[in-house]
Amino acid sequence: MDPDSVDSVDRVPHGSSDDPDVLDFSANINTRVPDGARAAYDAAFAESRSYPPDDYSEFRAAAAAYVDCDPEQVVPTAGGLAALRLAVATAIRPGESALVPYPSFGEYAREVELQGGEPSLVPHDDLLDSDPEPHALAVVCNPNNPTGDSYDAARLREFAVRCRESDTLLVADEAFLGFTDEPSLAGEPGVVVARSLTKLFGFPGLRAGFAVDGRESERLETARRAWSLGWPAARVGTVSMRETAFIRATRERVARERAFLERALATEFTVAPSDSPFLLVAVPDHERLVERARESGVVVRDATTFRGLDSHMRVAVRERGENERLLAALGVDVPE
């Protein structure tokens, strides 16, 4: 991190509410957790009296099977954001530039700026047409947050090749890819993939994730903190990534509920196509609508905090009864 840059960089707003009296649609978290997660968490209590083994061999093996890569390429991190920071910190020098999409996750530009780099902001839809050659780093969010759409897999791999030929590190944030059937870039030469276990497995407070380093380098492994996962995160993450039936059922349920919400919301508003556990909705007078929902005990994400969006909200996909409550809070009729 560049000490001279820290004072000029701001925090980034995020979704999520810690108010127990509201229904939270502002954070895109699975409403369910794998069956084995609680037992793994409880068993980790006694283990937490000692340091975890820093090689994390079981976690790496489970992660490698989960995204189809070599276990030696897996770098355990405390969440997907920690993987992103590690990738950016080991790639950007002060004064260097990075291709960063918008509207997208605000932490990309922030992490580049913390290293003294210069974010070169490009519309999300145009990023794969950009020339990576002048940049030390390029970031893709797939599927993109907050728009929800995935990149075409063939075009994304073509862009990865162009980045590699330009000696530009491609960082692929796949925080929501587990909700889709789209292929991962994990193990692709010259690419660092950041994966979060927060969203798909429903435990954001556990801070579990990993990077996959597709380069012939040990830079990420060398730079990561010792004991980068606590025992609970390592154990629960390992068990969860092996729950293939849970992952399949989650994808089916989220796709079904997303279609239900999209159909209803589209009768009143403009809804962006999504492959993700959330929908981006363009609404007139968004401040009034966000406040109306809050008065009904429902919190949605004011998406105008994302660069390029001026009258939008983002809503998570939850269980059917909760989704119906969201519609009622927004004044939208529930479909027959």
Rank of each mutant, 00 (worst) to 15 (best):
R251L: 07
E243S: 13
E257W: 07
A282E: 15
E243I: 00
P277H: 13
A259M: 07
F246W: 02
A249F: 00
R256A: 11
A259L: 09
E243T: 01
S240L: 02
T267L: 05
S274L: 12
A266D: 14
A264N: 09
P277A: 12
D275W: 06
L279I: 13
V271H: 11
V283N: 10
S240H: 07
V271D: 11
R263P: 01
E262T: 13
S240C: 12
E268N: 13
L280R: 04
P284I: 05
R256H: 10
F269Q: 02
R251G: 04
V236L: 06
A234W: 02
E268S: 15
P277E: 14
I247Y: 02
V254S: 07
A282R: 15
E257A: 03
E262M: 09
T244I: 01
T244R: 05
R251E: 05
R235C: 05
E268L: 06
T270V: 14
E252F: 00
R235D: 14
L265S: 08
S274M: 13
V236Y: 04
L280W: 07
A282F: 10
L261Y: 08
R248L: 02
L265V: 08
G237Q: 08
T267P: 08
R242L: 09
L261Q: 04
V283R: 06
F269C: 06
A259F: 03
S274R: 12
L261A: 04
P284R: 13
A249H: 03
V236Q: 10
V236M: 11
R263K: 13
V239S: 03
G237L: 03
T270A: 14
G237M: 05
F246Q: 01
P284G: 11
V283Y: 05
A266P: 04
V254E: 08
F278G: 11
T238D: 11
